Measured scan of single mutants.
Amino acid sequence: MIINNLKLIREKKKISQSELAALLEVSRQTINGIEKNKYNPSLQLALKIAYYLNTPLEDIFQWQ
């Protein structure tokens, strides 16, 4: 199972779901689904999230 800290990191950086979704060219619902662990992002999307949040990938997504 993958645990993610996306919501915590996104809120710490004061970025809304809508703003992050626009940067990543995905829907706000996609961001919401990832934050709620409804599904895991593709590797490409995970890397883009880490890039736009300027945060190491392993700080956002962790195996458990």
Rank of each mutant, 00 (worst) to 15 (best):
50 A>D: 00
10 R>A: 02
46 A>R: 06
19 E>M: 10
50 A>P: 01
44 Q>G: 13
1 M>P: 13
10 R>M: 07
8 L>C: 11
40 N>T: 14
31 I>M: 04
32 N>E: 15
54 N>E: 14
20 L>F: 08
35 E>F: 01
32 N>A: 09
2 I>D: 05
19 E>R: 13
41 P>R: 00
58 E>L: 11
8 L>G: 09
24 L>R: 01
19 E>A: 13
25 E>F: 10
31 I>A: 02
18 S>E: 15
61 F>M: 03
45 L>I: 07
7 K>E: 12
54 N>A: 12
8 L>H: 14
49 I>C: 06
31 I>N: 00
61 F>K: 01
5 N>A: 05
39 Y>Q: 11
31 I>C: 02
37 N>A: 07
37 N>I: 03
13 K>R: 09
26 V>F: 02
27 S>C: 05
55 T>W: 05
10 R>K: 01
10 R>I: 03
59 D>T: 08
50 A>V: 05
37 N>W: 14
28 R>A: 15
39 Y>L: 14
59 D>C: 08
55 T>Y: 06
11 E>C: 07
48 K>G: 07
44 Q>R: 10
26 V>R: 03
33 G>Q: 11
8 L>E: 14
5 N>S: 05
20 L>M: 06
34 I>N: 00
34 I>Q: 00
62 Q>P: 05
43 L>W: 11
14 K>S: 12
33 G>R: 12
64 Q>F: 06
1 M>T: 06
15 I>R: 04
54 N>Y: 06
57 L>C: 05
49 I>L: 07
5 N>T: 04
52 Y>N: 07
60 I>S: 01
63 W>H: 05
17 Q>N: 04
17 Q>D: 05
50 A>I: 03
48 K>T: 05
7 K>L: 09
37 N>G: 11
51 Y>C: 08
41 P>Y: 02
7 K>P: 05
48 K>S: 09
16 S>E: 06
50 A>N: 01
23 L>I: 14
26 V>C: 07
44 Q>Y: 09
62 Q>D: 05
51 Y>E: 10
20 L>T: 00
8 L>W: 12
45 L>G: 02
41 P>K: 01
15 I>G: 01
61 F>G: 01
46 A>I: 04
33 G>V: 09
45 L>V: 07
20 L>R: 00
43 L>N: 08
48 K>E: 07
39 Y>P: 03
58 E>N: 14
55 T>S: 09
47 L>Y: 12
40 N>E: 11
19 E>K: 10
27 S>L: 03
48 K>P: 01
26 V>H: 03
49 I>G: 00
46 A>W: 05
63 W>M: 05
42 S>K: 07
41 P>C: 06
31 I>S: 00
54 N>P: 00
22 A>H: 13
56 P>Q: 12
22 A>Y: 10
33 G>M: 12
59 D>G: 07
38 K>G: 07
36 K>L: 14
11 E>T: 12
35 E>T: 02
32 N>L: 10
3 I>V: 14
14 K>P: 04
59 D>V: 09
42 S>E: 08
1 M>Y: 06
43 L>R: 09
15 I>N: 02
52 Y>L: 11
55 T>E: 11
11 E>D: 12
54 N>L: 05
33 G>A: 12
59 D>P: 01
47 L>C: 11
47 L>V: 13
36 K>D: 15
8 L>R: 14
54 N>Q: 14
54 N>V: 06
55 T>G: 02
47 L>K: 15
14 K>C: 08
12 K>C: 09
13 K>H: 11
22 A>T: 14
24 L>E: 00
1 M>H: 05
1 M>L: 15
44 Q>W: 09
29 Q>R: 12
33 G>E: 14
61 F>E: 01
1 M>V: 09
51 Y>F: 14
34 I>G: 00
21 A>H: 02
36 K>Q: 15
42 S>L: 03
60 I>Q: 00
41 P>T: 04
29 Q>N: 15
25 E>P: 07
12 K>S: 12
43 L>G: 07
63 W>F: 10
22 A>M: 10
36 K>R: 12
12 K>A: 13
7 K>C: 06
13 K>V: 07
55 T>A: 08
19 E>H: 10
23 L>T: 08
29 Q>A: 13
21 A>Q: 03
25 E>H: 15
28 R>K: 15
57 L>V: 12
41 P>M: 05
25 E>K: 11
13 K>L: 11
54 N>C: 08
60 I>L: 12
58 E>A: 11
13 K>P: 01
27 S>T: 09
28 R>I: 15
18 S>Y: 14
58 E>C: 09
7 K>D: 04
39 Y>T: 10
41 P>G: 02
28 R>F: 14
32 N>G: 07
61 F>R: 00
11 E>A: 08
25 E>C: 10
47 L>S: 14
48 K>L: 08
61 F>Q: 01
5 N>E: 05
63 W>K: 05
18 S>I: 15
6 L>M: 12
61 F>A: 01
31 I>Y: 05
53 L>I: 04
64 Q>N: 12
54 N>F: 05
15 I>F: 10
60 I>V: 10
47 L>F: 09
54 N>G: 11
23 L>Y: 14
35 E>W: 01
53 L>D: 00
11 E>P: 02
41 P>F: 04
24 L>H: 01
63 W>T: 05
3 I>S: 10
13 K>M: 13
44 Q>V: 12
14 K>Q: 12
62 Q>G: 08
6 L>F: 04
59 D>Q: 12
44 Q>H: 13
3 I>Y: 09
18 S>A: 11
57 L>Q: 04
63 W>G: 04
42 S>T: 10
8 L>M: 11
32 N>V: 15
56 P>G: 05
39 Y>C: 11
24 L>F: 03
7 K>T: 10
23 L>N: 13
38 K>I: 15
46 A>D: 00
58 E>Y: 10
2 I>P: 08
59 D>F: 08
24 L>I: 13
56 P>N: 09
29 Q>F: 13
38 K>M: 15
23 L>P: 03
5 N>F: 05
55 T>D: 03
53 L>W: 03
36 K>W: 08
32 N>Y: 10
26 V>S: 04
40 N>V: 11
6 L>N: 00
46 A>G: 09
6 L>C: 05
34 I>F: 04
1 M>F: 07
63 W>Q: 05
33 G>H: 14
22 A>G: 12
39 Y>F: 15
15 I>P: 00
64 Q>V: 11
7 K>N: 06
40 N>L: 07
13 K>I: 07
17 Q>M: 14
36 K>A: 15
42 S>W: 04
38 K>P: 02
5 N>G: 03
59 D>A: 12
57 L>S: 05
16 S>D: 06
9 I>M: 07
40 N>H: 08
5 N>R: 07
63 W>S: 05
38 K>W: 12
15 I>T: 05
5 N>W: 05
10 R>T: 02
43 L>H: 14
12 K>N: 12
62 Q>V: 11
8 L>V: 15
12 K>E: 12
